[in-house]
């Protein structure tokens, strides 16, 4: 690990970077994913009030699942990647209704 990138990586790891990264992914990434899902639900074929309430109720389950995912997978990178993979289709759906 002599390259600059390697040294940055080593410093990141040494200072608890992966852990901090996971905490941020869980707290904020998880909330963002849950919020996104609660908006994406509006794209489903049901009335607005029902969709809004469905999204709100589902959001906490999604948030909790996201946090578990973030700490269950092998690396911080995978944690973020997983959140993004789920976020992509939700973002499309949310985009269509915002």
């Amino acid at each position: 690990m002599t390259s600059v990138a390697g040294r940055v990586r080593a410093a990141f790891d040494a200072w608890g970077g992966p852990l901090v990264s996971r905490i941020v992914a869980a707290l904020f990434g998880g909330y963002a994913l849950a919020a996104l899902a609660s908006v994406a639900v509006l794209a489903l074929p049901m009335s607005k009030p029902q969709a809004v309430l469905t999204g709100e109720m589902a959001s906490f389950v999604i948030y909790a699942a996201a946090v578990i995912w973030v700490f269950a997978v092998r690396s911080a990178l995978r944690a973020w990647a997983g959140l993004l993979v789920v976020a992509a289709p939700l973002l499309l759906a949310a985009w269509s209704v915002w």
Partner: peptide, 11 residues
Amino acid sequence: LYMPWGQQAGI
């Protein structure tokens, strides 16, 4: 209160 986003987008 915690998840106002759907309401803001849809209502």
